[in-house]
Write a protein that binds this DNA or RNA. Structure first.
Lengths: 149, 149
DNA sequence: GTTTATGCAAAAGTTTTGCATCAAG
DNA sequence: CTTGATGCAAAACTTTTGCATAAAC
């Protein structure tokens, strides 16, 4: 696997060792394809990517590998407009998403102030935050009719 | 139907009229059960509620009625921990959710400051916001081990 | 009476699982 | 060798749809 994702590979290997699991050539292909794409991939997106490299791989392996990546903290599942998609998780600044309801484009944003306010709200009720998913729907600059309010 | 939900009923009736649809006794039962519960209901929760009132109602009608309520702006679907749930939407201040990963409890919160910051981020990229879903996962006061950091 | 609403069963879509086989250590 | 990984097919779930019948207007 590419050295580019050294951090991720280390985390994954540690996770595998901890659980007594092995690496395998096919698993590596799925992992590389996932890490190498910085997009928000559906299972089928990833399946198609992976098949270009290694046509024998089954959908099941893609599902299983994504579960593995999730449990290792390397992938996060999002449900965007009814469709499950996965994005990279490790070492990424926490971020939220703008999703265009017309063209489906996804834009990421992050705001420390929003995070802080959220923490404050949590403190009020004694809630301990572990993660969050924040999706904003609307129209992107390209799809919003110009001049309309 | 109960007069308590007069606003909602008006909106629903207008929506039905606009689309040339009718009311029906069974539809009314589903709508009342939904409006009368301020919880975040799964399809099955609502189905079970409704069956207590009117055992002949099928799951299909519950699905169809929820779609109808969504399109009328009376219900909103959320995916919480992989499960689709519906909550009331009309005349409700916009709010977000804390979800306890242990007991599943849902706590609502809202913050004008967060909304404003979000608007600001959107403005930066010319995004026009139409709605958002903001879910915060973690442990509620009851489930978080006391004293732990 | 005509059109819409409904229940049932079947279909469609997505994700998981059982199992025999292959690969990894 | 022993255990884990994989593909396939089947199962499990969730949601939608076709169709004949009942209810609304």
């Amino acid at each position: 696997m590419q050295r580019v994702f050294a951090d991720e590979i280390d985390v994954l290997n540690a996770h595998l060792k901890r659980r007594g699991l092995n690496r395998s050539s096919r698993r590596d292909v799925v992992v590389s394809a996932f890490l190498g794409s910085n997009k928000h991939l559906s299972v089928d997106d990833l399946y198609n990517l992976v098949r270009r490299k290694s046509p024998g791989i089954g959908r099941t392996t893609v599902y299983r590998t994504l579960k593995l990546l999730e449990s290792a903290g390397l992938a996060q599942a999002l449900v965007l407009q009814g469709e499950t998609r996965f994005e990279r998780e490790l070492n990424r600044r926490h971020h939220d998403h703008f999703i265009c309801s017309v063209c489906g484009s996804i834009f990421e944003f992050s705001s420390d102030e929003i995070e802080a306010l959220q923490e404050e709200e949590a403190r009020k009720i004694g809630f301990r935050i572990e993660g969050h998913k924040h999706q904003v729907y609307g129209k992107c600059a390209k799809c919003a009719p110009a001049g309309s309010k």
